[in-house]
Design a protein around this nucleic acid. Sequence first.
DNA 1: ATCGAGCTCACGGAAAACCGTGAGCTAAAA
DNA 2: TTTTAGCTCACGGTTTTCCGTGAGCTCGAT
Lengths: 221, 221
Amino acid sequence: MGKLKKIKVHIADDHMVLIDGIKAVLKTDEEIDVVGSSLNGEDVIEWYKSNKSDVLVLDINMPKVDGIGVLQEFSNQTSRPRIVVLSSYDDIKLVKEVLKIGADGFLAKKCAGEQIVQAIKTVHNGEQYFSEGVQQKIVSLFSGADNESKQAQDGVFVSSITDRELSILKLIAKEFNTKEIGNQLHISVNTVETHRKNLIRKLKVKNAVGLAIYAHKNQLV
Amino acid sequence: MGKLKKIKVHIADDHMVLIDGIKAVLKTDEEIDVVGSSLNGEDVIEWYKSNKSDVLVLDINMPKVDGIGVLQEFSNQTSRPRIVVLSSYDDIKLVKEVLKIGADGFLAKKCAGEQIVQAIKTVHNGEQYFSEGVQQKIVSLFSGADNESKQAQDGVFVSSITDRELSILKLIAKEFNTKEIGNQLHISVNTVETHRKNLIRKLKVKNAVGLAIYAHKNQLV
DNA sequence: ATCGAGCTCACGGAAAACCGTGAGCTAAAA
DNA sequence: TTTTAGCTCACGGTTTTCCGTGAGCTCGAT
């Protein structure tokens, strides 16, 4: 029992049912030890100020500070845990985003419980781990013919939206209209319309409803 | 071991991680036995054609047939399991909806794992179970002064939307505009606008974006 | 048999969203 | 230092949404 140096894991998810569930699953594995858990991003950051773990299982959709925020917090720290992102959606855009800011693995929640064990061990071993559907999507992106692959990237990898656009996107997804957004941000309605226009183009949706849906799917609200 | 007649439980959720997690949690309880699980509503209905359980833990947001659909399927059956609805959102409107069509309990996913054990035992015992936040909301609705309570009900309990309105709502949430919806349903754009108007009024939102958000929050898509 | 709920449709006007296009400013990157 | 990316704003025209109001039809409940 004292022989193995267990992998210390911290779990962050706003659904306590899921945390308790994952804990119960991981308890069956001898190499893994759950040393902490958090219900929101703020608590995660707080926890790591006075504790440390080898791996962090991180949900994207959390109150206060979300998974993205936590990743950004860790991004300029030298000593940080390996991070497995947990998400309801296996959205390739989201995968790209979180990889860019320091995630080591990506696990869709639809995966079997056993996979989370595998994911933790894999990232702890210094490799990257992706659940099946994600893996396939990534591969298919780079397996296309040369001329097609560039277009495919244009189509799938969104030219990332700017900070300002993100603000507008969030407000649109909160049911505010152009005039109200302009007032809140102290900018002209014309400017808001320009941003909305660019968002619609970049995110390849048809209208404000599409933007709101995108925002909700990507847990921006 | 053979002494206790265990409570047979079936779990339905589209996230296998959650199923495996709940299974692991329930395994620690001597009175409960997980006898099956499903990843979508169709499988749930299929399973119960040749099996039975005492309690069904049912997620609302599932592909193919969602939790609502499963409840409706059970609603006119004599022999059906007690049902605990599991949902990401502790939306009082949703609670009212599922209770009306036969749910026995309502558990928000943010609850602790232990609560699911309690919920299963409670509904199996013939009582209703609600997680804390939901309980509070229900109580607060009926604890108000007489003159206020009626208004409060008007505000919180939505005058339920009709089947046709639901169809339109779903299509709006899929980014279709009025003309497209009219074509798909073979009705006039005027009619679609009427339905949309009534939806905006009934759901107390400001515009189509609000409708889309409502639809997504309530997992109608 | 009457009543109400649900679905259908129409019309007209106001408001908001949508679209293209062009352009000035600033700060950071090449 | 030149260039680029991001934020800002304007304008005119088209399309869509929003809103009130009224009305006919059907079906099931009272």
